[in-house]
Each structure stands twice: as structure tokens, then as C-alpha cells.
Amino acid sequence: MKIEGLDKVVYTVGRITPNGINLLGTCFLLNKAGLFATASHVTNNDNNNLVIFISGNTDLTTYQDTTNNQGQTVPASIFKVDPIRDICILKIDTQAVSNLQIGGTDDIKVSENVGIVGFPHCVNGRNILTFQSTEVGAKILIESSGIKSNHLVLNVQTRPGQSGSPIFRLSDSKLIGMIIGSYAPGGGGGISLGGIDPNTLHQTTHAVSSEYISKMI
């Protein structure tokens, strides 16, 4: 899988506040003009002051400067939401489009290798585009409000900020899913140590199938 140009596809979503911009998670440009996918919990389904943050400093082929917090914000609005699969499609006023080939979890087998591209820790203000590779550990059905949907277990630790990260099949860069979080009994949130939920410190990441994104655009 080529890493060149991923900085023109994967960005952070943020919200403008009186104190500046709060980065909320990762999003990525789809193959329809101006449309981006992220997790619906990243935006909380709230349009107010939502932006896509473009830093110009996230090229994976160079050293990304951790002291450089400069960038542009582009107003975004929520175009479609599927709260069951935790997917949100954002729209910005642009003709920009990616050449992503959107597949789904049916296109990959357990043990196959995938690449994850996103912004771990962006919720703490760290806007560093990061590539991780791992393998599919399991194909699972996860329930939400009585509906079961196709998901993957990825054998990798992910962190806050990575929700909305695209997952590519390494052999041909086909999009197969999107990170939505990690396994935690009851959804976690019980204990916090220094802002970290110990329930999430493991290598069982949950990703939703991108087949549901195709149905929304």
C-alpha cells in the first residue's frame, strides 16, 4: 500500500469553540465530491461550528513537526447519519474527491493484513497523521438498538482520536472499514486514570464495515 498522498485523503474533524478548535476525531475524503466519512459519535450529530482541519503538515513521507499547530478550517455540515452503525457523512463546499474504492468486511478474511490511517491523540491537540498495520483478528456482529451489523476486530491498540480512521486492505488499498473504538464491557467509562480508561488498554479494536458507507452516499 502506498502512503504518498494519504495526507490529502485523511484529516481531522474539529469544532470551533471560544477557546479555539477542539479536534474530535479522524475523517476521510470519499469518492463523491466534498463528502467525508467519520464516526457519528465524533460529531455527536451536532452541526454547530463543525470544521475539517487542514494543516498541510501531515505528509507521511516527511517528518511532521509536532510543534506546528497551524492550519486552515473548512466549515462542514452533517450530510447523513446512521447512528446504528455509528457513521456520519460530512459535506464541505468543494469539488475535492478521492479515488477510494469502497468495499466492506466481506472483502477481507481473518488473518489478512490491513492498514489504518488516522490521528491518534488528536483529541489532545496532537495532529500527527499515523499509519498502523495489523491483521484482521475476527469478523463479528455487534448489536445496536436490536440491529446486528458487520464489524471487524483488529489486533491493534487504538486511542482516542482514531474514531473515523479508514481501514485499507494492504494488498490493494481497498477501503474495508472504519474505526469506531475498542472493546470495553458496557462501553467503558467507569474508571479514568489520568484521563485514560484502563478498559481500553488492549489490542481489540472495533471497526465497522464500509459497506454501510456506500449505502449512505
Binding site: 465524533v42 483529541v123 455487534i142 462501553g187
Partner: peptide, 23 residues
């Protein structure tokens, strides 16, 4: 209520706005 309260079972969410008021 099922629509408004939908949440992926047993999944800790990795977004930046935790605990926002429900609708």
C-alpha cells in the same frame, strides 16, 4: 427511542466529545 439512544454495544468510543447531553 431506539434511534436516539443507539450505541454500539460494548465499545468504548474514541471521539473527543464524551458525555455530551442526550437528546
Amino acid at each position: 427511542d431506539n434511534w436516539l439512544n443507539a450505541t454500539t454495544a460494548n465499545t468504548a468510543k474514541f471521539g473527543g466529545e464524551q458525555g455530551k447531553a442526550k437528546i
